[in-house]
Design a binder for these strands. Structure first.
Lengths: 221, 221
DNA sequence: ATCTGACCTTCAGGCTGACTTAAGGTTCTT
DNA sequence: AAGAACCTTAAGTCAGCCTGAAGGTCAGAT
């Protein structure tokens, strides 16, 4: 699941360079080359935005301000100006970082990674992974478009795994969260529920992996 | 509730200047003037750390590394060097921002505020070193992007080393922490587990070094 | 160089933890 | 109140993992 980056940059050479560097590092880059299209973009669709302040057609600081009002997406500002006042103003407007041209692509990359390392926890309501579609609010699960009938506990267990896709979740935390929180001793109840979930999910059930001695995880595709 | 800031800076003039500026803006500043006292500090007691890389007595990057291992506190690095390699290295070590001297105090202030504006949500506990990527919460290990399948004990041992990257961990503490805490006498069980971890890690396995008569350490790259 | 103790690796035994099925008990619905 | 749906426990079985032994290797000391 690569991070999506929006690049707003009018200079063709520089843009090319940045895009190729980011793409090489596994990022999914959308490149907009003027201010008006930047204003039409949806900042919330991206994980991070790289914004050049020097644009024809619109003032970079205005774009920054609008982005900040519509989404929480971190913005990394790019500028040729080395004046402190511009830096201060962008940071005051909510820019999360500031890189001055000229710069090495490695530096930009390092800053982007440093920024993404602390991810915003997206409160997603619908989790789609593989053939599975899990609507946490509606409590509906579909496998390849087919509705799957799960009981309360079965759904909560699957959702608990799906919300941290790929992570191992301990038996204890699953018991605490889904079953009776103050339950003593060991029991095989959890196993029985997962056994049913697996069966009901058919082929996708194989993605619920046992982490021996720890708990369970939902394998990412 | 004002934010607590730790300033590590040996230059008296610059330090004075920064402290007075930050104090004027309502921050509570603790100023340490040399590397050894910086090493004794508790990074987790502060909301943000401003660290000058050029210090007598200790290397700034080492302090940064240690801070990063012991706390999640964001670190803003201060340096006279304008070399990209130093920037990249600090950012790679977990620095959250980088300011080059000379700078206007207003710029530093703006960056500090930009940083504090975003509270830490969920601290991701991911250790990246060399080709290894160890997600402590998810219990996932990747070597050069390839998933490595480790058992519970194997993972815990590797994680124990990685969390104190470069430091030797005694056999006893590993046994206490990962294996049965009240275990009598000597056994070769630990060796067996590390043998398997090394094998599963392939070339990176060589980074698990034996500290003769003491224990093991994971070599930093 | 030789010795000694610590460490590495392989291997098989044994055990812990997990899966499945079945049945009893509980809660919800009608 | 009866029935259905669901949760839990129990029991049998099985797979994966941990462990200690044994023999070989290596590092440090004399």
């Amino acid at each position: 699941m690569s991070s999506k980056i929006l690049l707003v940059e009018d200079d063709k050479n520089l843009g090319d360079q940045i895009v190729s560097h980011l793409a090489r590092d596994g990022f999914e880059v959308t490149w907009l080359r003027d201010g008006s299209s930047a204003l039409d973009a949806e900042p919330k669709d991206f994980d991070l935005i790289v914004l050049d302040l020097m644009l024809p057609g619109a003032h970079g600081l205005d774009i920054l301000k609008i982005y900040r009002e519509t989404a929480e997406t971190p913005v990394l500002v790019l500028s040729a100006r080395n004046e402190t006042s511009t830096k201060v103003r962008s940071l005051a407007l909510g820019a999360d970082d500031y890189v001055t041209k000229p710069f090495w692509p490695e530096e930009l990359l390092a800053r982007i990674q440093a920024r993404l390392r602390r991810p915003l926890l997206h409160a997603t309501d619908v989790i789609e992974t593989g053939a599975l579609r899990i609507d946490v609010n509606a409590r509906v699960v579909e496998n390849a478009g087919q509705k799957v009938d799960l009981t309360r506990i079965e759904f909560d267990l699957l959702a608990a795994l799906a919300q941290r896709l790929g992570s191992a979740i301990t038996r204890q935390s699953l018991v605490d969260r889904v079953l009776d929180p103050d339950r003593e001793g060991t029991s095989r109840t959890l196993d029985v529920h997962f056994s049913r979930v697996r069966k009901k999910l058919g082929s996708e059930g194989g993605r619920i992996a046992t982490v021996w001695g720890v708990g369970y995880r939902l394998l990412a595709t």
